[in-house]
Design a binder for these strands. Structure first.
Lengths: 166, 166
DNA sequence: CTGAACTTTCAAAATAAATTGAAAGATAGT
DNA sequence: ACTATCTTTCAATTTATTTTGAAAGTTCAG
């Protein structure tokens, strides 16, 4: 496989996978493109290489910045802005863990806490409470685990996991 | 909050959350419904309670069975089939980990292995290889972690995590 | 201040995903 | 074998998401 073929396959595969995870295909492809780009790319570059419109490129670049996965980069003497991706994949993983925790786990925990206030006075209500309690403990666990990933140094994390999960 | 209100909110919230995770809203709602149902439900019950069509109910019930999250249940003397959800939420979590590993991580690892065969003879190709290597190590880590969850007993898992990730 | 270069917005269009419901397919009792 | 009951399929429809592109907005050099 040549480099060109491999790159094309990577962009394609990453985009497809993303959709399974509830992530927009184009956003994933832009991220992949910037990940493997040796130089910062302009919006124009991204539009051209992925054959997408200006609006689409702009929207998804902004979204990636929101996620903390790419950064604006100003070339001296250039008017337009360029973009670079965080290349340290462990940092990327930690950033994703951090954002998913903030955006997804936190709201779940809040709703679960509300639901635990319901009166448990009938058999159905008691059954319901048991399920909510169970979900709460799993969600709390997920929150701790993600938080650990967020806080971890790469080597520490790998080391701990290898110890426990060999 | 009454039990009815809490249940309605749970079904609604679960369905909404699911879409963020690339899971179909109705599938999540059916799962939630069966989770909190004290008795096995028929397809008819599900259609009625969630106000969905027969085809939709059938399709998503089958999908949930594929995921190993619910089971067919035959009432003695009854012609039609009923459905029950696995109520042990830690088992559910392990089952989800198992399926996501099989369906999502495995294929990623395969593609990455292919991409690592590409020649790294130009500066771009070398950059590309570094990124692919990084992704491979993170993916391998994710695979190990999920596998650990799959194999773990609830108490063991909690214990280990509390030790490491307090 | 003006205009060129670039970025952002957003309503409309295109695409993708989920849902319906009627028809076809099973299955079991008689 | 017939029929009533229940399940599955799938083409058509509906709904949700993504993408486009032209217009508006911004910024900066001159």
């Amino acid at each position: 496989m040549t480099y060109e073929e491999a790159k094309a396959k990577f962009l394609q595969t990453w985009g497809t996978l993303a959709t399974q995870w509830g992530i927009n295909r184009t956003m994933a492809q832009i991220h992949a493109l910037l990940l493997v780009a040796p130089e910062p790319l302009s919006a124009e570059d991204v539009m051209e290489q992925l054959q997408i419109s200006r609006g689409n490129a702009n929207m998804n670049l902004r979204e990636l910045i929101d996620w903390g996965l790419i950064f604006r980069y100003l070339k001296p003497g250039e008017r337009r802005e360029f973009f670079v991706a965080e290349k340290d994949i462990w940092k990327v993983a930690r950033q994703v863990a951090k954002e998913r925790r903030r955006r997804e786990i936190k709201p779940v925990l809040e709703v679960l806490a509300e639901l635990q206030l319901a009166d448990a006075d009938t058999p159905e209500a008691i059954e319901f409470q048991k399920i909510i309690d169970g979900i709460s403990s799993v969600a709390g666990f997920a929150d701790s685990a993600l938080n650990a990933v967020v806080r971890a140094e790469e080597n520490w994390l790998m080391g701990q996991f290898m110890k426990v999960f060999k």
